[in-house]
């Protein structure tokens, strides 16, 4: 069953079509990768789904409900949370408090919030840093915190925007394991990542955006052979736009 349906969504900035009539479906429990060259509109699409930008056209259906144009906090309460491409923890709050924000204000609000926040930190492997100020974290830890915070809200659909980019190999492998275990918990994931090996290794299916349009939507091995995708990444041919 489709958890998220993106129907003909466009997002314009002035005259620029950052996202142009994209249709996309994400099924319950699926892990879908979203790729595309720089400026393809991936993050913009994320932001539309998360409610940061209202769609200029089209609909975002989540769980059978239209969520396009809702405020981000309302979208979060429906069960969609996103991480930010540029990590932005609340610098003067502790790691635990950062997660607590999502736990207390997010989608699922049951049980002792502190307990739940600790469990989330345990889960992502940040428990030992719980009482450190977020500004004092290293980049890998900040990225982990970004994920933990989003998980704290109890999302059904998690939008991960480049949580692996910029990490060294060991860290990247750890984060990939983390993403797999999030998926095993039944959370549906839509993720943007540039590293092909990562995205090919993790995704059930891959959607490719180019110039704001969807040019491919298939399992990893098919996408990697798709001439349109290869062309988009090499970017040499004269585009007939």
């Amino acid at each position: 069953m489709a958890l998220l349906e993106v129907q003909g969504v466009s997002r314009y900035f002035g005259g620029l079509r950052a996202v142009d009539h994209v249709d996309m479906v994400v099924g319950e429990g699926e892990l879908v990768g979203l790729i595309g060259p720089n400026g393809a509109g991936k993050t913009t699409l994320f932001r539309v789904i998360a409610g940061v930008y209202p769609p200029s056209a089209g609909q975002v259906i989540f769980n059978g409900e239209s969520v396009g144009g809702l405020h981000p906090n309302r979208v979060c309460h429906k069960g969609i949370t996103s991480t930010h491409q540029v990590v932005r923890p609340f610098p003067a709050l502790t790691v635990l408090e950062n997660v607590l924000v999502g736990v207390q204000y997010g989608n699922v609000r049951s049980g002792d919030p502190r307990q739940r926040a600790r469990e989330v930190l345990e889960f992502v492997g940040l428990a030992h840093r719980a009482d450190v100020l977020a500004r004092n974290l290293t980049l890998p830890d900040r990225k982990r915190l970004e994920v933990a915070r989003a998980l704290g809200t109890g999302p059904k659909l998690l939008l991960l925007d480049e949580v692996i980019a910029g990490l060294n190999q060991t860290e990247a492998a750890r984060t990939m394991d983390l993403i797999r275990s999030i998926k095993r918990q039944g959370v549906t994931i839509l993720m943007i990542e540039h590293n092909m090996r990562v995205i090919m290794g993790l995704s059930d299916r891959i959607v490719v955006l180019h110039h704001g349009e969807k040019i491919a939507d298939a399992p990893p091995e098919q996408v990697s052979r798709d001439p349109k995708v290869i062309e988009a990444y090499l970017g040499e041919s004269p585009v007939s736009a």
Binding site: S82, L93, V101, Q104, Y105
Partner: peptide, 24 residues
Amino acid sequence: SKLGLGLFALNMDPEAAETLGVDT
């Protein structure tokens, strides 16, 4: 309190707070 945590969060980064469910 929860109120205070939300206020600190929206003070530091309103957009991030919103995506975490805070009705700023």
